[in-house]
Design a protein around this nucleic acid. Structure first.
Lengths: 205, 205
DNA sequence: TTATTTACCGACCATTCGGTCAGGAATCAA
DNA sequence: TTGATTCCTGACCGAATGGTCGGTAAATAA
């Protein structure tokens, strides 16, 4: 069996060295994203990490807990940017653009976790909880869009909720094709493109 | 067990009446979409239809065949509109808008099948085949966008492929929230909203 | 009535699933 | 060396999975 132990850097810990929860969680999110949550067995995941299934259970209470931790990480990141945008001062339209840019940042920074979140279906209690938290975020976004429309800064011929859904449908679609580059962050360029197209439209102005 | 036999309308057939492949396929696509392909067992599906698992296997060769038939139906619809748009005459930008409108039509008309297609991961040969066909479609779309940019009708400050991805990321996101209404087709209104936002942008003009 | 055709059922099978358990191996401190 | 701590393994368990098989039920045609 090919072992690729991730030894913890710096601070020595007690006992036999090996994986920690964070490394397991990252691998889990990536594998769940690639093959789907239901399509990934704990044995698959163990093989990816290069250890036995029972060793995996030393780090984690169960499969569902992995999903919980992973989706929470994504949700915490997204909730933070929504709260930031809502609390910010200035016109709602500007705050919405800020929200889009920050959301792209989070998607890029936490890609495997957000991808997993966006694919959750609702089969288990954990999944339904994640969906509930997502809905709260979507609601806050729709409110911000509605404010921007009321301010007269956004087009009023499309329902605010529909606008919000299409806008973030575009933003979130990024998890379908974006893959990180080795050379630092291209999140800013990506956010520029998204904002340009979303706010000013595709057509040459 | 609650039986809800779908008796075939009109033309009488030979033998005991019951389900036909089409009804099974529709239920399969809906259930796969709700719970995920891997998250749906053949027994689950049989229960949804109100019959036994072995009866299900009388209609279908296997689980993977259901996925194949369902994704093919979505891909055939999408391929048709792409070919129509490509073959159409007029400026590329107009053909692109036509493609978006027709795509919305297909998404609405074949919602469970397209939704399933967009969630396919690549675990089986069938899934990989579907993904390959999808890539061909995406490629044709990107070419159309590139032509429209070359014509000077679309903004050139964003890579054509990125533009294509974001545009259809927005279009495809519709499967995440759109639910059919009992009162006929609202596909046209939906397409209007999508085109307005995508081509002219969110901001008031 | 009987033959034919189509649809269905319950019992069964090999495999895989998430998860458990008792113990072994690697590390550090004393 | 010994003990404490942490990480890991192989064997195992009951349940669920995709799929099969022999036989039955309901319809039309002869």
């Amino acid at each position: 069996m090919t072992k690729s132990h991730v030894v913890n850097p710096g601070a020595r810990k007690l006992g036999r060295p090996g994986y920690d929860l964070d490394a397991v969680l990252l691998a889990a999110a990536q594998t769940f994203t690639e093959r789907g949550y239901d399509g990934t067995s704990m044995d698959d995941l163990a093989r990816v990490l290069g250890l036995s299934k029972s060793a995996l259970y030393h780090h984690v209470a169960g499969k569902e807990q992995l999903l919980q931790l992973a989706t929470d990480r994504a949700l915490d990141g997204l909730t933070a940017v929504v709260e930031e945008a809502v609390a910010h001062d200035g016109p709602a339209a500007d705050r919405l653009e800020l929200l889009v840019r920050r959301s792209v940042d989070v998607l890029v920074a936490e890609l495997p976790f957000v991808t997993l979140l966006l694919r959750v279906r609702g089969n288990t209690a954990t999944e339904r909880r994640a969906i509930r938290r997502r809905r709260e975020i979507d609601h806050a976004v729709a409110e911000l869009v509605a404010k921007a429309v009321a301010d007269g800064d956004l087009r009023s011929d499309v329902e605010p909720q529909l606008t919000a859904r299409l806008l973030f449908g575009m933003v979130n679609s990024l998890v379908e094709w974006y893959r990180p580059t080795r050379s630092g962050s291209d999140a800013a360029e990506l956010a520029d493109a998204v904002c340009a197209i979303a706010f000013a439209g595709l057509r040459r102005s």
